[in-house]
Nucleic acid binder design. Structure first.
Length: 612
RNA sequence: GGAGCUGUAGCUCAAUUGGUCAGAGCGCCGGCCUGUCACGCCGGAGGUCGCGGGUUCAAGUCCCGUCAGCUCCGCCA
């Protein structure tokens, strides 16, 4: 209340109104620019008041803009009127300040500040806009409740770190456009209002007023359009494009996100990988000055699962898993029958793990259980002797086999994961590997890129009782596995590839099917009737029949890329206006209810969600 | 749909076993202060302890429910 009254006084005195922001008040330099060589020059600065230090007789403020801050001095001996008015200034007021830049008196320089050797001595100033008291403090706002930051996002973005994040994102997109442009790629926009193809993620739907009862979908990706652009002969396409998926959110997942979408004609996997590697290496050099080795390390999906228990392994953690089925096969031990029935036993060697206490071991086992494991056995080698609950089931030969297979040394521990399902055993132990690696400081190096290749083409979905595409239904099968396409679809490997950085899926792509007959077969394997395939993807099938070049591409997640480059914890910190975990925007209050009239025009009736 | 963590002043947090527990720092307001730079000093305002119920002589604290935010699982071709 007092503050409001105060603002009123400012207005009444005409301090705010009697002057206009004409060209004489426009800045002659940015707030982060003044240097020693500017001393003696007249200058005008425009910016936000960031820090006020009123010593009574003399007032210092820092004037901030996105380039930095400069100290401004109000000295009553030099300008009593300006000094008097300055005592009413508060944080985040927008000011225009005229004066003389001068070298700071000896001993008062501030080495913390880029502009710290000079200061602006005020002749005159005007308040361009006052500010209400801000709801959180600008400095160390990183620890502020994120909901509050999102509600006042424009203030959050006025902070140094967020400005830096936005700027880095801009530099990345600029580099991206330049890189692909220089390499013969053309950026082409594809529609945001498009057709729902109920494969994959849930669609965001948009009702059509002029077609009552019909809906567009926002694109989950421009996949089909970019393939058709290849049919058009565009040859090399790229687009920095928004994509939409109506699925639950995570720290690295937002309902709308940005892809760097790429497609090329007359190429093989090698060409896509090469251009992606050149792009990423160039980008990391440009933005971080980091040297990235190319070509990237490659793993087949099978090996990635076997060795790291993940299809996006974090190679900064050196631990690998080993298959210990042989150790337990055919003997008298608790796992013998599991092996006989095709089960899997995986081992993970933890260097130095012999010092883990009984309690620590059982805590780890409990964590494995929360992942869905029935249990997790362990061995430890102390004084050259293998110890653990399973030792009594193993003879000398098997014990030496365990040592040679797992390469376990004195002082180590070895964790054992068993499951009927190979993939599940790998993934559960892989998760333990990841957690142990991070907790025990085993993360080495900064940026470890790799390709994961030879993904399965299809995956059995127990829920719907049919195969679904692991990547998408347009991915080409590997030539070697073609024969199984209709007989044993689960066995077919695809020409898909993911690029992985430090345990994060940065992007993925594939060589596409360019033969309409092959595409029809793929739909058949997915249990689409020809009619259903035609209804959903008829335009693609028809397009493919008019002379389609072999083609393929990749899509990289721009938000994740920026996040990893900046070392942010959440994708939200590299997006200007992200949504919260419920996919709401606390600032605009979207999504919201709309007028009945709007719904009527769209021929839409809503149902009380409580009745569903 | 499920699991976990969190919720106390504008912001960040504290309050031991249920008992002077309504607190601190920052911010805000007022006063003093001419070289500060996270200025300093003095004073002040400000809280339905997320919400509802229960146990108890007594609840910020224990129990049940509920809401909100975050993290994770499911989900995300």
């Amino acid at each position: 209340m007092k503050r409001e009254k105060f603002l009123q006084i400012i207005f009444e005195r005409g301090i705010f109104m009697e002057r206009y922001y004409d060209s004489s008040w426009q800045r002659t330099m940015f707030c982060g620019e003044p240097r020693l060589e500017d001393s003696g020059k007249k200058a005008v600065l425009n910016g936000w008041l960031r820090c006020r230090r009123d010593l009574g007789g003399i007032i210092f403020i820092e004037l901030w803009d996105k380039t930095g801050a400069t100290q401004v001095v109000f000295n009553p001996e030099l300008n009593a009127e300006a000094h008097k008015r300055a005592s009413s200034l508060r944080n985040e007021y927008v000011l225009a300040v005229k004066g003389v830049m001068r070298q700071r008196p000896e001993g008062t320089e501030n080495p913390e500040l880029a502009t710290g050797s000079v200061e602006l001595l005020v002749d005159d100033f005007m308040i361009l806009a006052p500010s209400k008291q801000i709801p959180f403090e600008m400095d160390n706002a990183d620890s502020v409740n994120e909901d509050l930051r999102l509600k006042y996002r424009y203030l959050d973005l006025r902070r140094e770190t967020m400005q830096k994040n936005l700027m880095t994102r801009h530099k990345i997109t600029r580099f991206t456009r330049n890189f692909f442009g220089d390499n013969g790629f053309m950026e082409i926009e594809t529609p945001m209002l498009t057709k729902s193809t109920p494969e994959g993620a849930r669609d965001y739907l948009v009702p059509s007023r002029v077609n009552p009862g019909k809906f567009y979908a926002l694109p989950q990706s421009p996949q089909l359009f970019k393939q058709l652009l290849m049919v058009s002969g565009c040859d090399r396409y790229m687009q920095i494009v928004k994509c939409f998926r109506d699925e639950d959110l995570r720290a690295d997942r937002q309902p709308e996100f940005t892809q760097i979408d790429v497609e090329m004609s007359f190429i093989t996997e090698e060409d896509i990988m090469k251009i992606t590697e050149d792009y990423l290496a160039g980008l990391f050099c440009e933005i971080l000055g980091a040297k990235v080795e190319t070509p990237f390390f490659r793993l087949t999906w099978r090996d990635a699962m076997d060795l790291y228990g993940s299809d996006k392994p974090d190679l900064r953690i050196p631990m690998r898993m080993t298959d210990l089925g042989k150790v337990f096969a055919g003997g008298e031990n608790p796992f013998a029958s599991l092996i006989e029935n095709g089960g899997t036993i995986k081992g993970l060697r933890l260097p130095g793990g012999a010092t883990l206490s009984r309690k620590e071991l059982s805590d780890l086992e409990n964590r494995a259980k929360t992942l869905g494991a029935k249990g997790m056995a362990n061995f430890q080698i102390k004084g050259g002797e293998l110890k653990g609950p399973l030792v009594k089931f193993l003879d000398e030969d098997r014990i030496s086999l365990i040592r040679s297979l797992s390469e376990i040394q004195d002082g180590d521990a070895l964790f054992i994961m068993a499951d009927e399902n190979w993939r599940k055993a790998c993934e559960m132990l892989g998760q333990i590997r990841l957690e142990l690696g991070k907790e025990r400081g085993m993360v080495e190096g900064s940026f470890k890129f790799l390709w994961v290749t030879e993904f399965p083409l299809f995956e059995w979905d127990a829920e719907t009782g049919r195969y679904t595409a692991v990547h998408h239904p347009f991915t080409a099968p590997m030539n070697e596995d073609m024969e199984y396409l209709l007989t044993e679809p689960g066995k077919v490997r695809s020409r898909a590839y993911d690029v992985v950085l430090n345990g994060n899926e940065l992007g993925g792509g594939s060589i596409r099917i360019h033969d309409p007959e092959m595409q029809a077969k793929a739909f058949k394997a997915l249990n689409f009737t020809p009619e259903a395939a035609k209804e959903r993807f008829g335009f693609l099938l028809e397009g493919l029949s008019f002379g389609t070049p072999p083609h393929g591409g990749i899509a990289l997640g721009l938000d994740r890329l920026v996040m990893l480059i900046l070392g942010c914890r959440s994708i939200r910190d590299v997006m200007a206006f992200p949504k919260n975990q419920k996919a709401q925007c606390p600032m605009t209050d979207a999504p919201n209810v709309v007028d009945e009239k709007q719904l009527d025009e769209l021929a839409i009736k809503t149902v009380d969600p409580l009745l569903l």
